[in-house]
Simulated assay, not measured.
Amino acid sequence: MAVPYRVAGRDGFVPRFASPDVDVEDVAARCIRIAAAGADQYTGVQLLGAIPARGRGGAADTAGLSALAVDVDVEGDGHAATTDTGLPLPPSQEAAVGILAGLPDPTYLVATGGGVHAWWIFNRHAAVDLVDAKRIVRGWSDLVRGRAHGLGWHVDQTGDLARVLRLPGTINYKYPGRPVVEIVASGPRHSLDELASLIPAQEPEPERSTAFVRPASGGADAAEVTARWSAETDWATLLEPAGWTCSRDNCHGERHWTRPGKTSGTSAVSHDDPPVLHVFTSGSELPVGTSTKLDVYAGLHHGGDVRAAWHTIASLLAAAGPNVAGLARFVADGGPAERTGGRLVWAARQIATEADRNILIRQLIRAAVDRGLPLDTAARAAVRGLRSQERTAPVGH
């Protein structure tokens, strides 16, 4: 079981886990002590198959379904005034609970200080494959969101297997007054079949508007295309059209991002070297954990299908020709300084068949020199790249 915590003023969760052979009362006591020391304490909604190799675990680490749960925020400090549906949040805890009227009574209803969590715990663990588990969890969240929409209120999409919620009996340090997270009502346990039967058939997701994708310059090899496109595509190009906002930029290749639906706080941190995004919140379309730019593009525009995302990037290669400005950026900023020469060799290969290659190569050499490569070393690397491409060019018959 995941029992992560987050220290106030710091980004991300500290992963912690409880094994089945550990006394649950001891686990609860440790969680209470951590919370009393100033940390926000959480618990995973689903059980894990094993302790994850990295982080606090994701959807693939879960083992079937143990419960369904929703998180209903209410208006007030700490929540955005605008939402992705354009509807307001429920104005009070009573209104939030009213959204659940007509559904089976939750096993636990938890007041968090900023809203309510509703848990429907199963009378036994359900061994469900990953695809069905995702569909059921997402469908239950959509069911509650639909009921809220009918009342004119917004509920966040929290239907993901890696969801963690605040642990009752701990303190919510997000709000003034530090409210205690407490169970305010309880009910029976339920069967998976009982709850799943209430989930309406899911409609196909609407097509996304076509996003601008910069064609990768040069090279048809999959790894080369991915590296090129990643070097030429800024994180803002990927995240801002999807509603993410940059909340802090340290001007040294690290930026902090706030997810759609929130006005403050760090939901993810991007890095330029290496080009990865660390996502801390499960309240967005991107999975918690570390993702490459291709992973992010696939998650936002191709339902997580990396192969489809790559084909979108690669499809414009033939018509686009080499993007020399992008190649220069790759030489200068595409990796560690000690590998600048290797990047220059590769970049030179991409322009070797161009009629004006002797002019274009100057821009690549200049980029390498700006990164710290001596001019004579850069010139030799450029020549090596041009000649290696000439040697491998097919011979006409």
Results as ranks from 00 to 15, higher is better:
residue 326 G to L: 04
residue 326 G to Y: 06
residue 326 G to D: 08
residue 328 A to Y: 03
residue 331 V to R: 00
residue 333 D to I: 06
residue 334 G to M: 05
residue 334 G to P: 07
residue 334 G to Q: 05
residue 335 G to T: 09
residue 335 G to Q: 09
residue 337 A to N: 04
residue 341 G to L: 03
residue 342 G to L: 03
residue 346 W to D: 08
residue 346 W to M: 08
residue 346 W to S: 11
residue 349 R to E: 15
residue 349 R to K: 12
residue 350 Q to Y: 02
residue 350 Q to F: 01
residue 350 Q to I: 03
residue 352 A to Y: 03
residue 353 T to K: 12
residue 356 D to V: 02
residue 356 D to F: 00
residue 357 R to F: 03
residue 357 R to I: 04
residue 359 I to W: 10
residue 359 I to L: 12
residue 359 I to V: 15
residue 360 L to F: 00
residue 360 L to V: 00
residue 362 R to P: 01
residue 363 Q to E: 11
residue 363 Q to P: 02
residue 366 R to W: 07
residue 369 V to C: 05
residue 369 V to M: 01
residue 371 R to C: 12
residue 371 R to V: 12
residue 372 G to Y: 01
residue 372 G to R: 06
residue 374 P to Y: 02
residue 374 P to W: 00
residue 374 P to E: 03
residue 374 P to A: 06
residue 374 P to T: 02
residue 375 L to W: 07
residue 376 D to Q: 11
residue 377 T to D: 15
residue 377 T to Q: 15
residue 378 A to S: 09
residue 378 A to Y: 10
residue 378 A to G: 07
residue 379 A to F: 10
residue 382 A to G: 05
residue 382 A to P: 06
residue 383 V to T: 10
residue 383 V to Q: 14
residue 384 R to L: 14
residue 385 G to L: 01
residue 386 L to E: 08
residue 387 R to N: 10
residue 387 R to V: 11
residue 387 R to M: 09
residue 388 S to D: 15
residue 389 Q to K: 15
residue 390 E to G: 11
residue 391 R to S: 13
residue 391 R to H: 13
residue 391 R to T: 09
residue 391 R to N: 14
